[in-house]
Design a protein around this nucleic acid. Structure first.
Lengths: 193, 193
DNA sequence: AAACAAACAGTCAAGCCTGCTTGTAAATGG
DNA sequence: CCATTTACAAGCAGGCTTGACTGTTTGTTT
């Protein structure tokens, strides 16, 4: 019984290492720098082992996409639990989340998916799922009801805004300006809700 | 005199074709799909001619970056001239501009530049220049003065928002939702300014 | 313990991308 | 009118990436 588990665990662990290496690679080297060889090396796994678990590059990336999604939601929820519940704190939380490495990896996938049919399907699905989840979480954190007129627009605009801020933060460190805009937006939002 | 011009013209035309093919390729195939071979073929130019004008891939892309920048500003200004001057119309104009192919090409460069040191320098410079230009144009179009408190934040937030909207529009057609958010924000902005 | 399956290591061939080199025609300048 | 320069064509070499293939170890089942 135990031995049976041991192999399954080892297998899962290798897969996890490969997926995390993929994400790490996406962040550090970008989409085109994320080669199977590079990922295998980073994961400390042989090409053979990699190919055993993920037959093609596409499969590996698909798994990594899922991994990013699952991790994203989990991280955000965890942070939300310990966060202050003021409008400003919540907007800041969501904005900071979008400035993390996880968003960077997601952005790489997002952009790559635009011109990669196979990836596109997966990322579209992930986007929809993740989008809903984040939207719901935002509603919950802001403690508002989106059946009230205007609330839906306000929350959606907020999410679009933080995505735009995150984009501007990719090339240069934009934390200061971001904090400023977030403060402005939070005041704005508070009046609305 | 005429003959002297002929060669220079031909040269410039070939360069232009190569740069436009690069942008077109960025939009259709993305950064990693934008290979020198592909660009040369699209431009209807031999590899030799391409290499004659742009010794390296980096040089070609650098030129394309400039091309994107110049074209972006020009296009936006041209559209602005014939546009209505209401807050909603202006926000819509800027949002639509960010949903164009030009933005898609810029986004490809932007994301690629994050992990490409050489490209990074160029795109950072372009970003700063283009950012200022668009900001100035937004001020002008909205007919506001950014020395007045709050105006700067409002305009910056607007630009961040449209960038976020543009991002969401990359994978799936988001025009309907975008229009909705734009309308919402335009109302909001009008009160602010 | 023996047969079978899964995990893993290492190497190989095919394909693609980039930049270089050789070759040709046209244009410019003296 | 000729020498030189410029614009362009075409093919080639080296390097990298991907997926496949072969062999070995570890685990599972009976």
């Amino acid at each position: 019984m135990e031995t049976r588990q041991r192999q399954a665990d080892r297998s899962r662990e290798t897969k996890r290492k490969l997926m995390e290496a993929t994400v790490e690679c996406l962040v550090e080297r970008g989409w085109s720098g994320t080669t199977t060889t590079e990922v295998a090396e980073r994961a400390g796994v042989s090409r053979g082992a990699q190919l055993h678990h993920f037959r093609t590059r596409g499969e590996l990336v698909a798994a990594a996409v899922e991994h990013v999604g699952a991790e994203s939601v989990e991280v955000l929820k965890r942070r939300a639990e310990i966060a202050e519940k003021s409008t400003h704190a919540v907007v800041e939380l969501i904005a900071d989340f979008h400035a993390s490495d996880l968003f960077t990896a997601a952005l790489e996938l997002w952009v790559a998916a635009r011109t990669d049919p196979e990836l596109r399907e997966q990322v579209l699905e992930l986007q929809a799922r993740l989008g809903r989840e984040v939207y719901g979480l935002a509603l919950e954190l802001l403690d508002v009801d989106d059946t009230r007129p205007g609330v839906k627009d306000a929350v959606q605009a907020t999410l679009d805004l933080v995505r735009g801020l995150a984009l501007a933060n990719q090339l240069a460190d934009d934390a200061k300006r971001r904090a400023h805009v977030v403060r402005y937006w939070a005041r704005m939002l508070e009046e609305q809700l």
